[in-house]
């Protein structure tokens, strides 16, 4: 990411900056210089050791375990001891009748969420930015940020309760204005909408913060000049504020698309039932079910690997496109 730019300073400048009292290093003593630089800050390596150990154990060791996707993994034989079987698990997955359903559900839920959930925080942030600081603005912000802190379990409980056909308040309200209500949680056609709308309710407010931070950086002189030229408020929002946050929008978009296939499976899992399964089952919930419920460890790992690879490809591709506009991640 862009964050590490200052670290790319040349070794000489790093040395002189951190040891101003020392003489400048002589040529031909590179190795010594290296050791000195490491020894000088040896404690910092202790500082970062637990963190690196964590990433090694809980992120890199599992990557080593990915090999069981190409093996017939038996817990008694261990990861290395199990027999290689090549791409059998992948073939089985690609040829299964549920492959296209899973892929479609995963992509359609993600795209639906992106289409509705991504622009809303931007619009809300632009609106916040137009309003004077005061009780009203702070009140709306506090309230709209709050759902971010509601746990997924409570969120799912709320959805189930509000949409209960016998007593749900939302059902009552829709009936009150004369709308025939479908069984939202049982009808596969409605599952995605329920998922996306509840997500919008929970995260739109919180999502504005990052844009508001970017909007704080707008040069007031631009606005002054635009006002003198007779630009309306709307025009200034569209031609000054919006372009200012385009880099932020672009980076968040890349990150979102890169995580496309890891849709919020923790929430889907809570809302899933046998009736809405045909539209609610996504790759990640499938991985959980086959792997940890039905104990098909190798097969589940293969499906999970497929998911990760697609994610990585999406991310790299999008970043390449973004690079042309100069707003890339790396």
């Amino acid at each position: 990411m862009k964050a590490s730019v200052p670290a790319q300073a040349s070794p000489e400048s790093a040395t002189t900056r951190s040891h101003p009292k020392r003489n400048s290093p002589q040529p031909g003593r590179k190795r010594n210089q290296w050791r000195r630089r490491i020894m000088h800050n040896w404690e910092l390596y202790l500082f970062i050791a637990p963190c690196l150990l964590y990433f090694f154990v809980f992120h890199y060791l599992p990557m080593y375990g990915i090999q069981i996707a190409f093996k017939n993994f038996l817990p008694t034989k261990g990861i290395t001891g199990s027999e290689w079987i090549g791409f059998d698990h992948f073939e089985r997955f690609f040829n299964s009748y549920y492959f296209w359903d899973l892929l479609w559900n995963t992509f359609s839920i993600s795209l639906y969420e992106l289409a509705v959930g991504f622009p809303l925080p931007i619009i809300l942030a632009l609106a916040f930015n137009e309003v004077k600081d005061g009780l009203f603005k702070r009140g709306v912000q506090t309230v709209t940020y709050a759902p971010h802190f509601i746990s997924l379990v409570v969120m799912a409980g709320m959805i189930i309760t509000f949409l209960s056909p016998s007593s749900g308040i939302l059902i009552r309200m829709l009936e009150g204005i004369g709308i025939d209500t479908p069984a939202f949680l049982e009808d596969p056609r409605w599952f995605k909408t329920v998922y996306v709308v509840s997500g919008v309710w929970q995260s739109t407010g919180w999502g504005t913060i990052i844009y508001l931070a970017a909007l704080a950086g707008v040069d007031p002189q631009l606005h002054e000049a635009a006002i003198v030229d007779g630009a309306s408020r709307l025009r200034r929002v569209l031609h000054i504020n919006l372009p200012t946050i385009v880099p932020t929008i672009s980076i968040l978009l890349i990150l979102n698309v890169g995580n496309m296939l890891s849709v919020g499976y923790e929430k889907i899992l809570l809302l899933q039932n046998s009736l809405n399964m045909e539209s609610s089952d996504v790759i990640a919930t499938f991985v959980y079910r086959t792997g940890l419920v039905n104990n098909q460890l190798s097969f589940s790992t293969a499906v999970g690997l497929f998911n990760s690879v697609i994610n990585a490809i999406l991310l790299v591709t999008l970043n390449r496109i973004a690079k042309r506009t100069g707003n890339s991640l790396w």
Binding site: H59, P62, G65, I66, V287, L292, S300, L315
Partner: peptide
């Protein structure tokens, strides 16, 4: 590790 991970089952095994 933000962009690529081992997945659910390998982590579970660890």
């Amino acid at each position: 590790t933000m962009f690529f991970n081992g997945g659910l089952v390998p982590l579970y095994l660890v």
